[in-house]
Design a protein around this nucleic acid. Structure first.
Lengths: 358, 358
DNA sequence: TTGTACGCGTTATCAG
DNA sequence: CTGATAACGCGTACAA
């Protein structure tokens, strides 16, 4: 990977730098002792100034402050944490930050945490329980003050055990899932009811023959599926007659499942996809097949991500309130870390964002 | 936000928990001293066992190890860092993790760092220089071992100064930008040349009247624009005659700019968008206007995100190698932190991923 | 092979 | 108002 030359006015140089090998030690970070010596006071006085404690002569305070600024001293948050018994670190565990709804959530959480003086450590813990346990262990080593678990895929015994082993004493907020543990809070969304309302919407649009396509393995997916079944039986369908296609959380899977649907289930008038991403894959299949949306087929996704808005035509999506969930979860977590009380479990209500596909 | 009831079989409870108010102190995290006492050895022996140092009687090693496991002791990484003078923390600064190409990059980086024993602290530093400086300060407080700066928006004097003030002694890798500072590495992509090749492709497809739509303010955008101008003049166009529409990095802006294009520049046969997201907005405008793609209009985006694949038709995109950049940047950073040498500046070469829009 | 003593950078307690 | 001193959890010379 060595390129030498001049490409588009950007000069490429190679400098095999001996990056400050010796010089680095000479100018370490300032400590309160250094400042104290400079100011002719004790370290504790400097500490007091830094933390704005009362009972310091104004003149010394100013003198110290000046030095602090001059040498632009920055306190070592880790050393601070050692004595304060907190790290101001929050662990954020999710399967994969690349899934659009988690990205949005993470953004909101990180912003909030930072505003409250905390730093988020985001861990892509994957979808295998072993990786998840590993992530929990890692966060324990970091002595995070609290932990946010995002996504119902984490709702399994292994993770629950890992948490009760390693994190029985710090607050944990589970977004979109729950553990029956004394220190775990839950923020949930009524995806079940939301999907019921999706069915209602389609029925109302004269699209009563509805298929459900998507993943079925996570608790969240199960809730969605339950909503689907419940609503469909409410409209007189037998559970055995329902068209439910099990797939992966990818656009490719959405595409394939939808092709299968078109081949095998000609009576279907509408589809509910368990995720927008899968729906986006489905849109492609309909587009290729020349199926008119919404006239010949109505579409609803879930998550209300940007995929629905980018699609042509834009598709309706069940907004499962990921950003609301993010701010609630972050708030509850910080509250818990700082000793403020909150309900152990709250639920948010999803909304259908109707667009051109219904 | 209090809900009581039973919704879709999910029982909602309200427990105004007094979350372990008293009990929490009783069972703090184990320290090496606790283990030492239990094992009847000194703390240093325990430390040696933990760090697999040689020169420990096998029997005591086993005894200690057993205790370690029994009480599932986990070393305090922060305390460890205090004496080791490292934190195994890496700061990752980007404008907004929600932009798809940054999300992918972040994922790759986080995975790599973790595999190498580091933890990433991701900061959404926004696009205002003040926020950026704030982020730098924050990372200094955390005493990160290294820092990754992602995105050419950070290439400004304020950030450069902040880095030389607060981070003159630790390695910094700048992905998609550069600072002339001794401790800063750069990983660049030849977006300029890439866009030139995009123009070449369109010309080759008999779509020589090309417009450029997108953001123009970041160094990265400037490089893209330069490539556009260079190639177009190469094909005999005068620079003044070029159609260049300045917009925002959003689908809405892409939509509006494209509408404007359709209204005002009927001779245009192809468009290069500075970002996939903007291109996606543009696709909508073409779709609404009934413009046939690629017959009546050829489209190329930049970033090679999922947006291009989801679009119907899928659009061609310049792959600016964000994930390669991510792994290179992460590798170089860890290398630098651990004292291994690397070129100070490397460049990756973009690739055109051709799809249905050209 | 193991223990003692010290230091990392900070805050808190207590004495002055 | 200010300064010693101890402590946080850990690693490491140095001594035994």
């Amino acid at each position: 990977m060595k390129i030498t030359g001049n490409i588009c006015d950007i000069k490429i140089q190679e400098i095999e730098d001996p990056l400050m090998k010796i010089s680095s030690r000479e100018e370490m970070n300032m400590t309160i002792y250094d400042i104290a010596k400079l100011a002719g006071v004790s370290a504790s006085t400097v500490s007091r100034v830094i933390n704005n404690k009362a009972g310091i002569k104004e003149s010394t305070r100013q003198k110290v402050k000046a030095l602090l600024k001059e040498y632009n001293y920055t306190p070592d948050e880790n050393a601070r944490g050692l004595v304060n018994k907190n790290t101001k670190l929050i662990g954020i565990m999710l399967a994969d930050i690349r899934s659009a709804h988690h990205t949005d959530l993470t953004y909101v959480v990180e912003k909030y945490l930072r505003q409250k003086g905390y730093c988020g450590i985001i861990l892509n813990a994957g979808s295998e329980t072993e990786e998840m346990e590993e992530a929990v262990r890692l966060l324990e080593k970091r002595r995070v003050d609290g932990m946010l678990v995002v996504g119902s895929v984490f709702q399994n015994e292994r993770v629950k055990n890992a948490i009760s082993e390693h994190f029985s004493k710090i607050p944990v907020v589970f977004a979109n899932g729950e553990f029956d543990l004394p220190n775990v809070y839950s923020v949930l969304v009524d995806e079940c009811g939301g999907v019921e309302r999706c069915v209602d919407l389609l029925v109302q649009k004269q699209k009563g023959n509805i298929a459900f396509i998507g993943t079925l393995n996570s608790p969240s997916s199960q809730a969605k599926l339950k909503g689907f079944k419940r609503a469909m039986t409410r409209y007189g369908k037998s559970e055995e007659s329902l068209v439910i296609l099990d797939g992966q959380p990818s656009k490719e899977s959405g595409y394939q499942m939808t092709q299968k649907l078109l081949e095998q289930y000609s009576e279907i008038q509408g589809v509910i996809y368990s995720e927008d991403l899968i729906a986006a894959g489905g849109m492609r299949a309909f587009w290729e097949a020349g199926v008119k949306i919404p006239d010949e087929m109505a579409i609803i996704g879930i998550d209300n991500t940007i995929y629905g808005e980018l699609s042509c035509p834009q598709f309706t999506s069940l907004d499962n309130k990921m950003t609301d969930m993010a701010s609630e979860a972050a708030r509850i977590l910080v509250d818990a870390v700082e000793g403020r009380k909150n309900p152990r479990k709250i639920m948010l209500f999803s909304d259908i964002i109707e667009r051109e596909s219904t």
